[in-house]
């Protein structure tokens, strides 16, 4: 028995040690980033220092006033795209899930099977046709092609559908009907509130996914004032960065990353529970 306890203590030690190393790896790079974003170019030239310096505000002002990389405008664009994506994606996915779960109709099985087959289909394979379509529709270099297609998000639909299946009693819908509630009202006022937890989780994931998306914006956006954050980061990488103020570069990356980290710290419990739900597929 004592030997068994000892082995557990040893294993526990190894587990904690590994976890600490991995956590260090996860945080280390962001720590350097944040420290470096507070340094001036001259301070960075001297080599790495472990403690933050006092140049953060100057760097931030430089980033905000830079016309070549309109970072703040980029953040505004990214927020517009990501929030609208999150809103319409979750609303219409919930609506689709509701339609397929509550009603009986001829094509129900076909429609469901179809969505399940395209569940993990990469968007890149249709990029050529998508690009041409966007040009023909006159949406090239606008934010619309980044937002509208998110109405059809199979993975979000599947999450909503599973959630409805375990949380919505059909008798509730029936009762509402008897009380004279219209079908649209049933969805908007009864089912939608029930789905709030699922919608919140998926809204976060859709927001982040859209915020981080690079492939599609890189294809359909051209002018600088339409650029989203990932596009600006890519432009930065393509520029002759060695002549730049490195403090400013670190600040630009910070500005792109840190808002999401801050939001994550507030919502982390929620987000991790959402990830775990995706894992309960047995």
């Amino acid at each position: 028995m004592i030997r068994k306890n000892n082995s557990n203590i040893a294993r526990s030690f190894v587990a904690h040690f590994t976890l600490i190393i991995l956590s260090f790896m996860c945080l280390f790079f962001f720590y350097i980033l944040i420290v470096n974003s507070t340094c001036s170019h001259a301070e960075l030239q001297k080599g790495f220092s472990a403690l933050p310096k006092s140049n953060a505000l100057v760097n931030f002002r430089n980033v905000a006033n830079d016309g070549t990389f309109p970072m703040l405008k980029g953040i505004v664009n990214s927020i517009i795209v990501s929030s609208l994506c999150a809103a319409i994606c979750t609303y219409f996915s919930a609506l689709t899930a509701f339609g397929l779960y509550v009603y009986d109709f001829k094509l129900k099985k076909v429609a469901f099977t179809f969505i399940m087959v395209i569940l993990v289909m990469p968007t890149q394979v249709t990029a050529l046709g998508f690009l041409r379509l966007i040009r023909n529709m006159g949406f090239y270099d606008t934010l619309i092609p980044l937002i509208l297609p998110s109405i059809a998000s199979p993975a979000v639909f599947y999450f909503m559908y599973s959630y409805l299946k375990s949380n919505l009693q059909l008798s509730l819908v029936e009762a509402a009907r008897i009380d004279g509630c219209g079908e649209i009202k049933i969805f908007n006022q009864i089912v939608f509130p029930i789905m709030k937890p699922a919608i919140a989780v998926q809204a976060i994931f859709t927001f982040v996914g859209s915020w981080n998306n690079y492939f599609v914006p890189a294809l359909v956006l051209e002018s600088k004032d339409k650029a989203t954050v990932p596009i600006l980061i890519a432009t930065l990488r393509g520029a002759d960065y060695m002549n730049f103020d490195m403090g400013k570069i670190y600040m630009m990356i910070t500005v792109a990353i840190v808002p999401i980290i801050i939001a994550y710290l507030f919502l982390s419990k929620f987000i991790i529970a959402g990830v775990a739900l995706g894992g309960v597929k047995e």
Binding site: N212, Y214, R237, I260, I261, I271
Partner: peptide, 21 residues
């Protein structure tokens, strides 16, 4: 919370960060 954090980071910004680091 810590090990999930990098999953939310913008891949392009993360790559740019690694490039400079």
């Amino acid at each position: 919370v810590v090990i999930y954090l990098p999953n939310l980071i913008m891949a392009s910004a993360f790559a740019m960060l690694f490039f400079t680091l």
